[in-house]
Design a protein around this nucleic acid. Structure first.
Lengths: 143, 143
DNA sequence: TTCTAGTTTAGAATCATTCTAATTTTCTTG
DNA sequence: CAAGAAAATTAGAATGATTCTAAACTAGAA
């Protein structure tokens, strides 16, 4: 064989997105970007992501996954959702939208942005700026 | 002395509220009820509550505090807020209102209900009922 | 007063997340 | 391409909130 080919087009795309975000396209970051930055809307926890990476043949240290998720968050590539169960979930959907939370499982369900009229921002306390607005409807399965 | 007097009026009130909620008025539950069910709006974590109880001369096991907070929550006497830092905060204000969260400190600030028009409930997924709606505006101190 | 179910308790256990210090990679620059 | 510095990754320990456990205590009924 003359040359190692890139594993897939996505892999190159992922590397480009990383460079655009000033993140070195390491093997680990590329593997994560391939899963999470492919345009599909998802909610993942660090542990879920690890299992997925293992299944995909790209196991890596949990610490690395946490590092990457934080870096992706700071780069604006992912959005953390703090309202679910114990674990933080990362949302690949960066658009303006909100969530139902199944109180029992911690699972998130997107609320269609058309279905709810977003409230206007109330006046903020002095010296602060709004970082995000989250509207969460906690759901319980009917008995 | 002929009789042991109740420590305070609140103590008796607290016991009544507990009985009304089908919770035995134990020494520990009364101490907590006195602090949290006196009508003032507050946000407390389990650890903060423990410090307060120690300062008040009513130290008790952290496990008991967690137990009580959960029981009070189930009885509808307190409302948990999951959006803050790592720890769950319990809100003594049961009215319809929402929160600012200082992202750095985890501190909650009530949003005056008059200042924001509550969004209508979106259509819920089948088989679920809404347990609560939380609107949270995450704040960061301006640099 | 006695009994029993309901409570409290100290301390161990758990779970998500962060930290640490050592090893490995990436990306220059020569 | 070789070498080195800076950036990343890693295993495993540490942390912090919360839950669990099993034993000791207490409230309220009889």
């Amino acid at each position: 064989m003359s040359e190692v080919q890139p594993k897939s087009i996505l892999s190159e795309e992922a590397a480009m997105k990383l460079r655009a975000a000033s993140l070195r396209p390491t093997r680990q970051r590329i593997a994560i970007a391939e899963r999470l930055l492919d345009g599909r809307a998802r909610h993942v926890s660090a542990e879920q992501l690890r299992d997925e990476l293992v299944a995909y043949g790209q196991p890596m240290a949990l610490a690395t996954i946490y590092n990457c998720l934080h870096q992706f968050e700071e780069a604006g590539l992912l959005r953390p959702v703090h309202h679910a169960g114990d674990a933080v979930l990362y949302d690949t959907n960066l658009g303006d939208h909100h969530h139902f939370v199944d109180v029992e499982t911690g699972e998130l369900i997107d609320i269609d942005p058309g279905e709810i009229l977003m409230p206007e921002l109330p006046e903020l306390p002095d010296g602060f700026e709004a970082e995000s607005i989250e509207l969460t409807v906690r759901l319980r399965r009917k008995s």
